[in-house]
Write a protein that binds this DNA or RNA. Sequence first.
DNA 1: CTTGAATGATACGGTTCCGAAACAAGCGTT
DNA 2: AACGCTTGTTTCGGAACCGTATCATTCAAG
Lengths: 116, 116
Amino acid sequence: MGVSLSASQALRLWQQVNLAEVHDDAPDLSERQMAILLTIYLDPPPHTVRGLAAKLGVTKPVITRALDTMGSHKLVSRHRDEADRRNVLVKRTVDGALYVERLGDVIIAKAAELPL
Amino acid sequence: MGVSLSASQALRLWQQVNLAEVHDDAPDLSERQMAILLTIYLDPPPHTVRGLAAKLGVTKPVITRALDTMGSHKLVSRHRDEADRRNVLVKRTVDGALYVERLGDVIIAKAAELPL
DNA sequence: CTTGAATGATACGGTTCCGAAACAAGCGTT
DNA sequence: AACGCTTGTTTCGGAACCGTATCATTCAAG
């Protein structure tokens, strides 16, 4: 169970992927935005503002603002929960799925290049 | 040569490490700041503003501002190059080394927890 | 109904960041 | 000394983000 990494490999991987992301034209996401985006795409729905805030250990406005920004980039979308109209359900988008998929490819590629 | 990751593992690793970083009290670094910090700590010196800008593919003010912020957090330090006083040499700090070391530990731990 | 709790969004003052342009300082050559 | 060239910083208006507090809407229970 698990993937074994040396300290050198772990940090080099982090550097290489971050360098690749910075080099790209893709929108630079903050750590918080990245955590939100990946949680939406990896964890089972539904995803609410409150739930995301709890999972990240941050306040609700942080989530609202991050969704504003990522929504303007079409990475996520918001919909009222018709069952309980207080809730906002955060959902995936085509662009967001492409972004996440591409990120995964970069991580895999950089991991494959790591020296032993 | 290299570490083999599935798409699911790669993305889950990225999520878990980002979640851990967000949850921490440690200063939230942007992707660019992270790339700079790791380059300073992993790549051989000397590190200049111009060199970092070239490696990241960004303009010099981006580096200056990132060094301002990270310097205020004591993660890096700046020193004039006495051989050529136009240059600024970016150097490591004790706090920065601790930050990087801790990050490496988190990555290793999260990688070890990945399901097959 | 009305009240209270829950959920998201918004307002506020302050900080950081952006890209582009202008600036300041140091070097090397003449 | 004076000129270009390199290096790093600063400035500018505009945007994003922070934490705290407040607001608006909705639900659910009395």
